[in-house]
Design a protein around this nucleic acid. Structure first.
Lengths: 223, 223, 223, 223
DNA sequence: AATGAATGAGAGTTCATTCAT
DNA sequence: TATGAATGAACTCTCATTCAT
């Protein structure tokens, strides 16, 4: 049960994702900057990176075109900030959601629920991040890696505690993340619903509980 | 164990994915068309949909710009044909790979191996298809749906035969596809390797075998 | 009452308006040529010279693109043939219509009626000919000049016979033609009607009868 | 002598003739906009709508291509503005010219003279407006309708005053406009002269005076 | 006599970015 | 700090015409 070697995916800490051309010194500047960042998130989510234009973003933010370049170096610059922003917010949402759990399986259930809630409220998460594949691969990797990086220690602990079956926690973490992402894509985004149908959610949890090898698999045949 | 209702994801048959402005009437035309389609696949995979230009595609195909429009209606038109083409080819690769399996778990192992092989040989698969999210949502959905649609009957059979644990086959299929996609992305594309490291593959199969609820889970604690 | 000097508007006889690249030797070729010419008239009338394309014309004629150049030298070539064709047909229609008249005013009434009828049946007349202004000025001039040239002798005769008041017949002819064209444009084409409303027609004839200085102006105060 | 019903030619007020993408906010912008508009008029008059290109217009205006789109939405947009501009200017020229007249016939003489003068100085009037037939029918109609709309009340007054013979003023106005347009086309534009030959002008006035049914037709046989 | 394939210049338009105020 | 003006390269797509069969 040796762990697979960690792949050379670069530093785990956040790379310098470009961004601010200047850090605003005054409160007013800070507000303007925030307006633009929010507008950018909306626009990227609505039309995607390529069809988002500086004009659209600045119009949405209600500032002049030139103002954009006071706060961001380039279109790519804002994009990376938007990704970093979303990344922090999903992670926060998930950890908040699972905080009250008393065992791993419950933590998963709560964490997934939190993730889906966030997804429904911020479709930008998918729409923006999936774009990152070509637009800014390093931003994409950083996004996934921080999520997985948060996940692994918990899985490792649970294995140590005998709560779940031993497996490479990296492979397990990526697999779980994959499922969350796909189910969210399929049943929230495509269906334009605000939640995954309960029946689907339940079945997903059955699958996940089996994956984890939880001793008392509530639906499986083991134990 | 009732199945979740099938989501209204549209017709299963392939939608009219745009495409040919004219179907070639002579052998020479057919060759030219193929040259352009192949060039398009390369270019899309190399630089993505948006940075791919008709100039780049026609240069790669060694034809004049105008010639492009003899065979394809638009840039989006070729894109959709490329997606449809890749879709058929992965599905073929996977079904060929798993043909010789004698049980479901083996079929999964062979199918996943086939999928990863195809992925390594045709990075275009990911690079092109992930773009489809914004470029042509219907092409994307059609892609996933045909894959899942192929998958489900096999899972259902295996459940009926008691080979794997009962679950909603839809949810299970999407979950399995998610894992394959993510592991391929993480260990083949990001690492720029031609295969998933065997240790990772094995661990992934452990996870999958648990998910399926195979009676003799070779590594888990059940059975 | 001397006549104004004839302006140097070029030869009155038809200039060589380009056209046939080859004269077809056989009946089949003649039929193909006619098909293309008719299609061209339709297409020019429908979308104008510039938006008419060889593709559209050949599609409408149900022949291959290359075939076009067997019978016409260029797009401009067909255009000029179409104009010449229409020119002959209107003039024929007008002279036929006025043939039975017993005096000038009646001839005018019948001629105008014939012109409007032709206009209603062949909107191409206007739509094609007005385009000629920029596309082929010489075709346009030839068109107007043949019409005026036909007109003048009749006016001159009528003046000699004391049927209408003496005036420069050239100025009179152009004025009459102007009125016909404008009324047709305004009440047939813009209204998309098949005839000028009778009340308008009558009023127009009142105006015309005054212009001509017909002794027994049926509505004026002279006589 | 009832008037023919007014045809349903749409609102009399100027339609939104497209145009500015942004109205300039600073004096410099206003100057640039004007430069482009003037250049466009020249280019349209010189080569016609279709052969006019944004490149030609911006080169003539000595600005970059992109600048064009700061002030106009499209090529059609400037075209419509040019038409509207010319429309206002001819109407102004004509009303100025006839201001000092003491009777209808004199007003006509002065008005026509003013019109021909404008025509000679701004050949763009014809060349641009005749193009409008296909390019922007609504601009064309608006042009004619405003001219006729200005004309009619004067004719009506003159009829009421017994200055001219009663007729439908609409038909009369269109007929007069037709004559002006045609004579200008024939003797100014085709001849490339700066005025209608005096002999032609006089004859035209004879015709017009008869049309109007002026009691003391100075050249006719009545009275 | 007729076809379909191929061409390539040129069109209108967009847009990230820079600059002067 | 903020603005609006300006840029020009690049894009997708059209089309009259020529050519080989």
């Amino acid at each position: 049960m040796s762990e697979t070697p960690s792949a050379p995916t670069g530093a785990v800490g956040p790379p310098d994702l470009g961004g601010a051309a200047t850090s605003p010194r005054r409160a007013k500047g800070e507000r303007t900057r925030r307006k633009i960042l929010d507008a950018a998130e909306q626009v990227f989510a609505a039309v995607g990176y390529h069809d988002a234009s500086i004009v659209k973003i600045t119009e949405a933010a209600d500032v002049a075109q030139g103002t954009f370049y006071l706060y961001f170096q380039s279109k790519l610059g804002v994009f990376e900030e938007v990704v970093a922003d979303l990344n922090q917010r999903v992670r926060h949402a998930m950890s908040e959601a699972s905080r009250s759990a008393t065992n791993r399986l419950e933590a998963e259930r709560l964490g997934f629920a939190g993730f889906f809630r966030f997804t429904a409220e911020h479709p930008a998460l998918y729409r923006v991040i999936r774009q990152a594949e070509f637009v800014s691969p390093r931003a994409l990797r950083h996004h996934y890696e921080t999520i997985i990086g948060n996940y692994v220690p918990y899985l490792r602990e649970a294995m140590a505690a005998g709560e779940i079956a031993p497996t490479d926690p990296m492979v397990l973490a990526w697999s779980l993340a994959a499922i969350g992402e796909m189910i969210g894509l399929r049943w929230i985004l495509w269906n334009e619903e605000h939640e995954v149908p309960p029946a689907v959610f339940d079945q997903m949890m059955v699958v996940i509980s089996r994956m984890l090898g939880v001793p008392r698999d509530p639906d499986g045949r083991s134990a």
